[in-house]
């Protein structure tokens, strides 16, 4: 909930605004420059997005993912507490793990790396970016990648959770023999 709808959802919602604003602020060397107050607002907005992106991947990797990959003890029949095992137990759902989760767990990290770069470059250059055509292109390109990577990870996460919800609990089973 906090990982997906909280951090991830807010991050994706924030994108619709930032893509338009980034484009408007840096689009052309002939367009009118944005006010200092507006540039300051966009910098703060980008910093919030960077924080949301990192919180989303870190909670995903260190809070939700351990529950997802928990090992079921020998002889467990009800796999509902072990989402990865549940998905892998059926040929109709194994793809959600072998393709969906395996792609999501890595591609999601491209979002915070890319949006951090976008924010850093915008903070350094501000509206001077309109005078750097190539920098502007790269910033907008990486911003799109940050959006698409997060969107893809969010979509796959939602679909996987639909097939095999992560329920959590007091302990995480690390191996088939022991628990932590």
């Amino acid at each position: 909930m906090i990982h997906g709808l909280g951090f991830g959802g807010l991050y994706l919602l924030a994108f619709s605004g930032v893509l338009v604003d980034l484009y408007r602020c840096t689009a052309s060397s002939n367009s009118s420059p944005s006010s200092p107050a507006h540039a300051r607002f966009l910098k703060a907005y980008l910093i919030v997005m960077v924080v949301l992106a990192w919180l989303a991947v870190l909670t995903g990797a260190y809070v939700v993912y351990p529950w997802y990959r928990a090992a079921a003890p020998h002889g467990t029949v009800d796999l509902s507490l072990y989402p990865q095992r549940l998905l892998m137990a059926s040929p109709t759902t194994i793809g959600w793990h072998s393709l969906g989760m395996e792609w999501k767990e890595h591609v999601a990290w491209l979002a915070p790396i890319s949006i951090t770069m976008v924010a850093a470059v915008f903070i350094r250059y501000g509206s001077d970016l309109r005078n750097h055509l190539q920098l502007r292109r790269a910033v907008l390109g990486f911003a799109w990648v940050a959006f698409l990577a997060a969107g893809l990870a969010g979509f796959l996460g939602a679909m996987i959770d639909k097939q095999a919800p992560v329920k959590g609990g007091a302990t995480i089973q690390l191996t088939q023999g022991g628990e932590r």
């Binding site: 060397s29 890319s114 770069m117 850093a120 470059v121 005078n131 750097h132 910033v139």
Partner: peptide
């Protein structure tokens, strides 16, 4: 004057190439 960059592009280039490198290292 408005169309003349006031900062060299090196700093931005460093951030962009490093982001690409970080993504590739991850993969």
């Amino acid at each position: 004057l408005q169309n003349t960059p006031s900062l060299p592009n090196g700093s931005g280039a460093a951030a962009i190439l490093a982001a690409g490198t970080g993504a590739f290292a991850l993969a």
